[in-house]
Design a protein around this nucleic acid. Structure first.
Length: 125
RNA sequence: GUUCGGGUUCGGGUGGCCGCUGCGUGGGGAGCAAUCUGCCGCGUAGAGGAAAGUCCGGACAUCACAAGGCAGCGUGUCCUGUGAAAGCAGGAGACACCCGGAGCCAAUGCCGGGUGGCCGGAAAGUGCCACAGAAAACAAACCGCCCGCAAGGGUAAGGGUGAAAAGGUGGGGUAAGAGCCCACCGCUCCGAAGGUAACGACGGAGGCACGGAAAACCCCGCGCGAUGCAAGACAAACAGGGGAAGGGUCGCCUGCCCGCUCAUAAUCCCCGGGUAUUAGUUGCACCCCGCUAUAAACGCGGGGCACGGUCGCCACGACCGCGAGAAAAAUGGCCACACAGCCCGCAAGGGCGGACAGAAUCCGGCUUACAGAACCCGAACGGCG
């Protein structure tokens, strides 16, 4: 899937909403949370693109560490995030163990958490 | 050649696939058009020597085209060069420490070499100096010594403590002692050859006063208006109302003094209103000419300009390098190959694995972090001639 600047979350209120109303799944290396897009935005276009946000806190390390981690996560989302590509907010938060993890480990963890989220959603329906 | 120290330069490479942001451009879409573009392509550019800490200095911007002071902040040997300034470089001086030499009872000083740095003042003032020690500074008596029956007094020579104990040695002197007196050494003050200067060879005087720390406060010289690109400018939208203060308020600073200006506005506080936008545009990312089997661009070629570096015949010139522009923040992810490095192994080979670190208005410095590579200089040791 594509992942351009337009698809990023930019407002604190959006992150707060996902935190308050969304569902999440936590793995060893990262936390994945998601919430549906608001209605009024969904009405404008039939299929609306999801918005993605990656949170890298200072706890993870200095700027270079945070940059690489954010780039890796963005790449993983671009490669495997297709099931999440419409109609939702998606927030990915790397945890402290992600700093020493390999790209492959991060990839597996992301896919696993994504499947868990989608599975519980289907059950709820 | 090895090791150590110093300096300069570099600080990961090549290729493939898939992406992101800026710019340019072809097509599609929207629009009467200018033009715009969340769509599909193509071309092209895209982190550092410290981008870091935010410690100095400037550019730029705003604050009333207006004067000054105190507090406050910065800075501190001298000369030269460089620079817009901060600063940097070279040389010199004093000081401290180390090594060697002469000298030697000791204190200390002399000669030669090397190293070092927040290098004004401790004789303006207030305070401080842990522990130990009797005592930590207008002195002082624990032991000791002397006088004395004792009470008490004299004594800073000796002991011991300490980071530091109030000049050193010798002689005289004395009840015992003491610069109390003398000689030499040291010290202080005054003069002074010389030196651009810091400084100071040398001479004279004085029994000697002045413990340390200025990174405790402080004092002296010199310098400094404040706030920072979240500065600020522009566009769009809108609706104002109420309160406090009346020689008080506001205006340029963190506080204050003094001066000046304005005249019911402004400022401040409260209530209310507005919304272009996935955080509006700009500030903010060099300019000109030519080229491309479409065209253009920040591409390529040439020229100019700014900045940085090197060299010089110091007129300025020559050569080399360099020109990124995000905004929840692009500059990347993965793979392969070779090259450094480390580990295991007799070897073949195998494994691990890229130092410190990420632009945010720009420029000049300072400080701090840093695996490794190349070159240059110096020192020590060893080898060869």
């Amino acid at each position: 899937m594509k992942l351009t600047r337009r698809q990023t979350m930019k407002r604190a209120s959006e992150f707060a909403m996902v935190r308050a109303e969304g569902s999440s799944a936590a793995g060893r290396f990262l936390v994945l949370s998601t919430a549906p897009l608001p209605r009024q935005q969904a009405n404008e276009a039939a299929i609306h693109e999801s918005r993605f946000g990656i949170i890298t806190t200072r706890k993870l390390g200095h700027a270079v560490v945070r940059n690489t981690l954010r780039r890796r996560v963005r790449e993983i989302v671009r490669a495997h995030g297709e099931p999440l590509s419409t109609g939702r907010y998606v927030v990915v938060i790397p945890r402290i163990h992600a700093v020493t993890a390999s790209y492959e480990q991060l990839e597996h963890d992301f896919i696993k958490q994504m499947k868990r989220l989608l599975h519980t959603e289907n059950k709820a329906c």
